[in-house]
Structures are given as C-alpha cells and as structure tokens.
Design a protein around this nucleic acid. Structure first.
Length: 558
RNA sequence: GCGCCCAUAGCUCAGUUGGAUAGAGCGUCUGACUACGAAUCAGAAGGCCGGGGGUUCAAAUCCCUCUGGGCGCACCA
C-alpha cells in the first residue's frame, strides 16, 4: 500500500471514531479524504483537506473539524505519522516517521531497474503511431519532437504495465510522392544534358539533386530524353526507396526504432481501401454527389461531409486513412494513440467520425496534438518548407547538439505548448543544456562508486546497513523524491505526459548536487558511509530508470 | 467569420487534474575548489498567473466574455 493510501486509511479511522463518539455527524466518505503532497514551503509530508470538505455539511468551521480529527489521529496506535499539525484555513499537515522513508532504499535495491514500474496498464496493449512523415525528404526538426515524445510515451506506458507498440505510417502514395518522382526526373534530365522544366511546386532540396546524381551513376543516360510518362514510375520508386531508407536512418541516429512500418500504398494494393469503403457503404455512410464519393461524417459531429473519392476517380488521403485505421482497430489493441502536429488538428473530428462509423467506441483512438516547433537561427525564424528546400534537418540538429540533448530538449515542454528551438543557442550552450545537469549527476555518482571501490569500501547487503544513520534533511528529501517515482510513472502514464519525467529528473538532480556539495558520502565513519552509498546508489538507479524512459543515456563518465 | 490550442518573473517554461505566502532554469549581481568530478553549489533581486465576470469553504487550474498570439477551416498530404 502506498503511503498516501495509508494516510487516507488513518484519517478514515479517525473520522470513524469521531463519529462513534458523536464528534462528527456525517459518515466517513473516502471521496472526501483528499491526501496530497503540500508545497515545498510547508514543513510536512502530506496534507489532507478533509476538514474543509466537511465544513459545509457539518456546519462548523474547518479549523474546528480539523482539530477534532487531529485529536483522533494522534491517538491512533497504528499511526505511521510522527506529527499531525493544524495549519492555515483547516489543513491537517502530516509528517511521517523518518523510518517510513528509509524503506524506499531497500525497495530500490531489491527492484533495481524495475523500480518505478507500476501495473495500471494490466497488460493492456496500446499502439502508438507517430512521426509518420511523407517520405519526400529528410525529417526536419519538427518531426524530432514527435519522435522523442512518441518514443518516450511508449516507454512510459510500458513502465506503467502496458504493452506498447510503435508504428510508423509511411505515406508512400499519392500526389506528393508523384511530385517527388517528377522532381527527381527533372533533375536527372538536367544532369544528362536534357534540361526540362522542374515541376511547379516540386521538391527542390539538394537531396533531390543528389538522388538524381546517384541514379545517373547507376543507370547512366538510359532514361535520357524519355518522356516523363514513360519513366515516372522508375523515378518515383527509386526516390521512394531512398527517402524511406533515409528517414529510417534519421530515426536510428536519433535513437528511435519502430516495431512496424505500415505502407499506405499497400492498402491500395491489398484492396483494403476498397474493403473499408464497402464496409462504410453497407452501413450507408457513403453517398455520391457531384461525381464524387462522400463520407457522411456529419452524422458523427464533423462540420461537413468529406470526399473520399474525387470526381476524377482518385481517392483522397482520407480513403486510405479510413482503411489504415480500420486495419489498426482490427488488430486487437485496447486503444490507439496518434501523435499529430497542430497543423492537423482539423482532422480530429473526421478521424473520430471514422472510428465511430467503423463501429468502435470513440475512446479507442486518442489523438494527441503537439504544438509546432518554431525554428530560430540567430534570432530569425527559419521557414520550414520542404518544397523550397529551406529547412534544418533533424540529422543536422543531432549532429550539432547531440542526440541526448535534442531528445531532452524536445521533452522539456508540455506537448501542447509551443517549442522554440534556437539552433544557435542549442549549439552555443550545449554545455549548459539541462540534460548535462542531469547526466552529470549520474556520472558523478558513478564516480563516487569508483572512488569507494578504490578505497576498498564494499557495500554490504542493504538489510545490514544502518539506515537510521541517514538523518540529514537533504537525505530525507532525496528519499522522499525517490519514493515518489512510482506514483510519477503512474500519473504521467495516465495523463500521457512524458515531459513530467524531465522535470522530475531536474529536481532530483538539483537535490543531489546540493547534497553532494554539502555532505561527504565517503567518510571515516563506516556505518554512515555504507548508508550514504546505498542512498546515492538508489538515486543513481532511479535517474537511470527515468532517463531510460525518456530515451536519454545515463553516462558513467562525461 | 467559425473551430482547436496557448497567454504565469526580463527570457524559456513547470505547477501533482480545485488547495495554503504561485515555483524552476537561463540571464543579472555577490560569494565557494589543498575534500568523493566546479558540466557543481550557496545567497540576492525579480509577479495584478493577459483583462473582467461567475461556480466553490477554496481558482493559475472549471464555466462565460473580452483582448492578444499560433494553427486549422480542400474533390492537397
């Protein structure tokens, strides 16, 4: 049982006895007993607001009720509390016996890399789909954010007891892909001495020319002067293959791998698009109008109906998205998570309509919207247009500031908050990046371990260690933060917010550095040394666990 | 015009799902290595939580409204 749970039980017991003695009229109600961790300036471990919640029902002042409950709490023989104080408008502030906190060290020691894992997922299976960029160019900085967040979220869900499956939906079909093929075709003809006009709105980045060069090196001038109709297929396929491989590589360099890659084109090849539409048609959710085929999404709260097949017979991307989500939903996941950029939020309503139309509850799909990354260089906004070829790639950023710093940076903000990424700042201040603050703490503790070893100190079995020697306020503070880790995993997973771990790490590292500067870990007092080594080893373990979830390395040396 | 998101210290952002006197980092100023790693630490200054109303014992947090920004509103992906 968690500590806040034990406190809650204690308060309910006190309430019950107060009821029996006629001091409180209403019956104990667990919903009214809110136990929380008070803000730092308050000298207590937990606080309950029960007296304030009861004030109106009881018709007495909160402080008066609090005093009553306080009396009963202090009489409780099974209390894990050392002190119960009445404060402010009617808070009961509860301070635990220090020994309650010391137990966490034994738990960390026993569980090691599994410390922090919780079971709220109950083995349920979740699919996280993220990045899913068009394979028409390298990943840019914005994609990095989805990559870092999606990966960390999947790790977080796993730590919380879910099965998490990472998937990349490759949009390898449609007009943009065709445009890519045309762009490479034009560059190729240019290289073999047959200049043709670049397609309007075509892709112009240097990587397009490079692809054309590699093609020329491979096939010579085989396709020189051939019409685009005759060889577009060749150029499109070649470009697609290269771009997909490039994106995979970009992600790999960023430390992220997917469990599966799903091809949009395969949905057409397998007939899945047709099947999905047939399914909807049978349910009367499709109709013809003006030569096009429409999806009746307004039946499910969308603003307007959406075209799935255009007048010219081509399918819209929505058609393949319907088929894709139908496929995902049929695979037996308990729910799906899509991470989309804010520029796609307009599609949420229609995707939810799709889920409902396919006969699934809306809750099966959770779409997380991330605010876009604003890229800044030398204080000037950098336009991120793929077509114009003006963008800074994810690879560039990783090369400049390092994988760990980039990942940590992307996870430093809430997903629905804008992220300003100043490249010059990230480069110039790479040593001041908060990630180093955390990693340094970890490396420092590894160094302490090495130092201890050199001095011939051997850590005893944790059960033999005199934990009661840990009495410094900083030590208690560290143990409390360690104790909070499993709950943090639980709450972050529930909220689907991995960024909370980033802040937790910064805080834990801060307390650790403070402690380190103030107290010596290895001293000539053997018992104290043992106890402190166990403490910092626990801190090290928890840091490594949290960093692991974020996808950031925990270096032993820096 | 309509919809979604955002607005908190000079800057960049947290704020445990409604709790107490709102917190960090950076930047600024002052200090700490003959001790386990100074990529560190200690101290100082910095606020009408965009404005107004409402719900509540209690609002940065929930509701309404206004202002200011971002992003959408295709038979493009």
């Amino acid at each position: 049982m968690t500590k806040d749970r034990m406190i809650k039980e204690m308060v309910l017991r006190a309430w019950q006895r107060a009821l029996e003695d006629g001091k409180i009229r209403s019956k104990p109600d667990p919903d009214k007993v809110v136990v929380e961790i008070p803000k730092e300036t308050v000298q207590a471990d937990y606080a309950t607001t029960v007296a304030m919640m009861l004030a109106r029902i009881e018709g007495r002042s909160p402080r008066e009720i609090a005093r009553t409950i306080q009396d009963y709490l202090q009489e409780d023989p099974q209390a894990i509390s050392e002190r119960v104080e009445l404060a402010g408008p009617g808070y009961l502030n509860i301070t635990l016996k220090p020994d309650q906190w010391r137990q966490v060290l034994l738990e960390v020691d026993a569980k090691r890399e599994r410390f922090g894992q919780v079971e709220i997922g109950g083995g349920r299976c979740v699919q996280v789909e993220f990045v899913s960029a068009n394979p028409t160019g390298p990943l840019h900085v914005g994609h990095g954010r989805w990559a870092a967040v999606g990966n960390a979220l999947a790790n977080l869900l796993q730590a919380a007891g879910y099965e998490a499956h990472r998937e990349y939906y490759n949009n390898d079909s449609g007009r943009q892909i065709k445009l890519l093929g045309q762009s490479v075709y034009a560059r190729y003809q240019h290289l073999v001495g047959n200049p043709v006009a670049d397609p309007e709105d075509g892709y112009r980045g240097a990587y397009v020319t490079e692809m054309a060069q590699r093609l020329r090196d491979r096939v010579g001038d085989t396709y020189r002067a051939k019409t685009i109709e005759a060889c577009l297929d060749f150029f499109t396929r070649a470009a697609l293959k290269e771009m997909t491989a490039l994106i995979r590589k970009d992600l790999e360099v960023f430390g992220i791998t997917f469990d599966s890659w799903f091809s949009e084109a395969s949905l057409y090849e397998s007939g899945a698009v047709q099947n999905a539409l047939d399914d909807l048609r049978k349910k009367d959710y499709l109709y013809e109008k003006d030569g096009a085929l429409w999806f009746r999404s307004t039946q499910f709260k969308d603003d307007k109906d959406r075209v799935v097949r255009k007048e010219d017979g081509e399918f819209t991307y929505l058609a393949s998205d319907i088929a894709y989500h139908r496929d995902k939903l049929s695979r037996g996941f308990d729910f799906l998570i899509n991470i989309w950029g804010a520029d796609h939020h307009g599609y949420i309503a229609r995707m939810e309509a799709v889920v409902l139309a396919l006969g699934y509850p809306k809750e099966k799909l959770r779409i997380l919207i991330g605010q876009l990354v604003t890229l800044v260089r030398n204080g000037q906004p950098v336009p991120m247009s793929k077509r114009a070829g003006e963008f800074v790639t994810l690879r560039d950023v990783v090369n400049e500031v390092g994988k760990d710093a980039a990942v940590f940076f992307f996870l430093m903000r809430r997903l629905d908050s804008h992220l300003e990424f100043d490249l010059e700042l990230a480069k110039r201040q790479s040593n001041e990046n908060p990630v180093y603050y955390v990693q340094y703490a970890h490396a420092r503790l590894c160094s302490v371990d090495r130092q201890a070893k050199e001095q011939g100190v051997r850590l005893k079995d944790s059960r033999q260690i005199r934990l009661d020697r840990l009495t410094e306020p900083e030590e208690l503070k560290l143990m409390k933060r360690l104790d909070a880790f499993p709950k943090l995993i639980e709450e972050s997973a529930r909220a689907l917010e991995p960024h909370r771990l980033t802040f937790y790490l910064l805080e834990l590292a801060g307390i650790l550095h403070h402690y380190y500067n103030k107290h010596r870990i290895i001293s000539d007092d053997p018992d104290l040394t043992q106890a402190r080594l166990l403490l910092v080893s626990s801190v090290k373990t928890v840091m490594a666990n949290a960093l692991g979830i974020l996808g950031v390395s925990a270096p032993e040396r820096m």
